[in-house]
């Protein structure tokens, strides 16, 4: 499963099936600090993902 963390950082995470939350924790990311979409659609952290899914992780900058 491809996980896009930023335009120039894509991680390959080998899981058959896991929650978004588990995937984020595997990557050392606090789920509170990011928003995740799968194949372009926003998804909650308890969503099961895996296989050919493509995740995009948006870490929002502080302020404003």
């Amino acid at each position: 499963m491809k996980v896009r963390l930023s335009p120039d950082r894509i991680e390959d995470v080998a899981v058959a099936s896991a929650t978004v939350e588990d995937v984020l924790l595997m990557l050392g990311i606090n789920p509170i600090e990011v928003i995740v979409s799968r194949n372009g659609a926003l998804i909650p952290e308890d969503t099961m993902v895996g296989g050919a899914d493509e995740l995009r992780v948006v870490r929002f900058v502080h302020g404003g």
């Binding site: 058959a16 099936s17 926003l42 998804i43 909650p44 993902v49 899914d53």
Partner: peptide
């Protein structure tokens, strides 16, 4: 695999959820 995203908690709503409220 495209996992099951379930449904929105609002009664009668069949749209997929985008967030779980922590509260």
């Amino acid at each position: 695999m495209a996992g099951e995203t379930g449904r929105c908690s609002c009664p009668g709503c069949t749209e997929p959820p985008i967030a779980v409220l922590r509260g």
